[in-house]
Design a protein around this nucleic acid. Structure first.
Lengths: 340, 340
DNA sequence: AGCGACCCTGCAAACGTGTGCATAATGGCG
DNA sequence: CGCCATTATGCACACGTTTGCAGGGTCGCT
């Protein structure tokens, strides 16, 4: 089997022309060929163990059955489930995904994007979109369809699927408000990312909805979704607004940063300060204390993004432009009624 | 730029023959072409924004600059750092990696493997090898080089890079023995996986080295590296050998399963039973209690595997066949001196 | 019987590169 | 001045598919 078996080999075995073999093997064009010849060809192909050469096919059809997936960092526990959802769905449809880690560096992002275009990917799924419209304008002339995942834009200029972040933030606020907290802080994420932005809006709306006043000093933003940034901003929060009894963080990692700062200051969680995270990252229930958080259907988000892209790849422009999946809530032990 | 710019376009712009352009642009063959013509060609290529078509190239050269990476499940926190290490190294060398999740299902494994071969990958890195020699014999005639990662075989029939699992287990045993434990149990992993097998051997050796006797009832094996299996086997362990004061688990997830069982039986960790894991998975220091565990340089393992494969892809058969990276130890709070 | 319609299949030209071979130009040397 | 070695480029084919076009055969209908 060293010299791989080709279309011509099958043709010879089935005593037909290579062109006929191509038609018989391609589901689209099978109708053009006599049924029994088709079967004979298929049998011959199977016996010889024929595998179509994707490069030759791609060369003709300009399709690679490959899609580019851009994530900031696969090491961030948020992304593996999303990627898994994407790959499962894409794989079932005969597509393969190329994954690139951009580390949220716009230059790397551009570079990877171009490298993937050079590799003839048929489309993109990216989790790296910044809210500033740079990305959109940069991808203006790109012919490959693009789907955003876990990010969305203000307008609907690009199809996207993400969790309903505002709703999630509302769940979080209502939970702590329901426990009796009144002085609630928000440890927000980067406002240039839709997740950070939307969750902040959700926080504001929910506070108003609960009839609670927002202390401006108790709303501060991290410049990245990391534990270190969470710790830094948490310190700011405690210094600027010492009276707070609950912190609604925009992300589990930010919440973990809070854990450290509370310990460092001799405050207990949840007895002194309640903390709620966002994402329900894997093993969040194992933390000390188990983290109360907003649960996001990561895998489904990935799968839905893949579906959206597959639609775009199949026909023209069908389906909804944006998809918002409902979050749920995981009440655990990092939240409790306020002290006193 | 819609009709992508091709070799002929560059040729026309540089007033040479397409063949010459090919030679000028390919570093290997640049020596064959006049220096100033080469420069003229390169400049023209840059101005036109020429990107070689990888499919056409691959069709001629039978190389795709693509490697297949097989992991059981990217969702398992063990693998993202490994994958990241692989991709970084491969990407720097101009290769792209295709990732597939096999869920440890031999059928899926075979299927994905073949699908990737059909896609003309240049080589494989797999983290899914079972210890039984099925995999080796199945991949006998495969011309693409294969590198094992986080798994190795008894013999050196396939190049592999992994952590020194025996040494790691030794560190774990010495740690608890040093704390004063004498009745030490081993919650082993699947013996069909080299990690499970080697760690068990390391456990046995280290016990002997420490002059401790092994209670046969206190050595049991999980059938998978999961929390559920960890819990199941932990119950068996406690039932069969109630006197144990420490459990050396072959994996962090197995250790987490122990946490649950201890809580369920009213035992405290580490006061009543010490537990040590293996892998130092992300956020293991956040668990309750923070997990004492053997630290593995995942990312470096991935990078080394990529290097090994790149060597194989570049020339013939150089470099070491197997690479064992040294583990270190993270003493945290799930271990303490034995009660009494 | 003749004619058109239809079905099937062969033919050949692409797709964009790489590369062996031929050939033209140049220089060195006897 | 002629010949050979060397260098530089053109030429054309091949890689394995897909696909428009054409043609051969069969069938039905008038």
């Amino acid at each position: 089997m060293r010299p791989s078996v080709t279309l011509r080999d099958v043709a010879r075995a089935a005593r037909v022309h290579p062109g006929t073999v191509s038609r018989a093997l391609n589901a689209e064009t099978r109708g053009l060929v006599n049924e029994e010849t088709a079967e004979r060809v298929i049998r011959a192909a199977e016996e010889l163990g024929y595998r179509p050469n994707p490069m030759a096919r791609g060369l003709k059809t300009n399709r690679s059955f490959t899609v580019g997936v851009l994530v900031p960092d696969i090491t961030n526990p948020l992304f593996p489930p999303i990627v898994r959802g994407i790959e499962d769905r894409l794989g079932a449809a005969g597509y393969t995904s190329l994954i690139a880690n951009t580390d949220n560096d716009p230059d790397r992002e551009r570079h990877d994007f171009e490298a993937m275009r050079a590799r003839q990917v048929d489309g993109f799924i990216t989790a790296t979109a910044r809210l500033d419209r740079d990305f959109v304008s940069e991808t203006e002339g790109v012919e490959q369809p693009i789907v955003l995942v876990n990010r969305r834009l203000e307008d609907v200029s690009l199809p996207a699927v993400s969790a309903d972040d505002r709703e999630g933030a509302r769940l979080a606020v209502e939970h702590v408000a329901g426990l009796g907290h009144r002085r609630i802080a928000h440890l927000g994420g980067p406002q240039a990312l839709s997740t950070g932005h939307q969750r902040r809006i959700g926080f504001t709306e929910a506070m108003a909805g609960a009839g609670l006043e927002i202390d401006e000093r108790a709303v501060r933003f991290a410049s990245a979704f990391t534990e270190a940034e969470g710790a830094r901003v948490c310190r700011e929060l405690l210094d600027a607004a010492p009276g707070i009894t609950a912190i609604v963080a925009a992300n589990d990692l930010l919440a973990l940063g809070c854990y450290d700062v509370l310990a460092e200051r001799g405050l207990r969680c949840p007895e002194d300060v309640s903390i709620v995270g966002f994402n329900d990252m894997p093993f969040a229930d194992r933390f000390d204390p188990p983290l109360t958080t907003v649960r996001i259907p990561h895998r489904e988000i990935g799968a839905a993004a893949a579906d959206l892209l597959l639609e775009r790849l199949a026909d023209g422009e069908h389906g909804p432009r944006q998809l918002l999946l409902a979050p749920s809530f995981a009440a655990r032990r990092s939240t409790a009624p306020p002290p006193g």
